[in-house]
Simulated assay, not measured.
Amino acid sequence: MGTPTKKHKFIFYDSEGSRVEGIIFNDDIHRMSQILQVYKKYKISNAEVRPIPSKFQTSELTVQWVISSRTVIDEIADDDEIMPVKFCYSKFTDLVQYMDDKTRSVDVLGVVISALERKTVIKNSRQSDVQKFVLLNEESQPVLLSLWDTFLGNEGQEIVSKLHSYPVIIARRIRVNNYNGVALGTWFDSAILVDPPIQEARELKNWALRNTKLIKEIVEKKDYIKYNPQLSLKSDQKTTWICNITSSQKTIWVKAQFSFEHIFQKYWYMSCKNCCRATAADYQIEFTCNSCKERHPAVPRCRFDVDLTDDTGVIPASIFGELAERLLTFSALEAMQHFNENVELPLEFVHKELKSKMFLLHIKPV
Rank of each mutant, 00 (worst) to 15 (best):
V111P: 01
I159F: 09
L209H: 11
R31C: 10
S90Y: 02
A171Q: 00
S54D: 15
E48Y: 15
S356W: 11
I242T: 06
K213Y: 12
G181S: 05
F151S: 00
D311E: 14
E261R: 04
I363L: 14
W241T: 12
S140G: 07
I35K: 15
Y89P: 12
D311C: 08
L184W: 08
K102M: 15
D79T: 07
A47C: 03
C289A: 05
E75M: 12
L135M: 05
I44V: 11
Y269P: 01
C272N: 07
F304E: 00
F56A: 12
R210V: 08
H362I: 06
L360T: 04
I76E: 15
L347V: 03
N211D: 12
I192N: 03
D94P: 10
Q237H: 12
E200V: 06
P51Y: 06
R31H: 13
K238G: 09
I159C: 06
S318T: 15
K9P: 02
D100G: 04
L147R: 01
A191S: 15
W268E: 04
K162W: 09
K55L: 10
K132E: 11
P196G: 05
A256I: 02
L184P: 00
L163I: 11
E158I: 07
H8G: 05
A332H: 09
A332P: 00
A183E: 12
T279M: 03
P196N: 04
I23D: 01
N290G: 15
Q257C: 07
E139K: 15
V366D: 13
V130T: 12
F264G: 00
K123L: 14
E48G: 08
E21S: 13
D107K: 05
K226M: 06
N177Q: 13
C292W: 03
L214C: 04
Q257T: 12
V306C: 07
Y89T: 02
N211C: 11
N290R: 09
E322T: 13
F87V: 04
P300I: 04
K102I: 05
C289F: 09
R172V: 06
W148I: 06
L152R: 01
S45F: 06
N46S: 11
V49R: 15
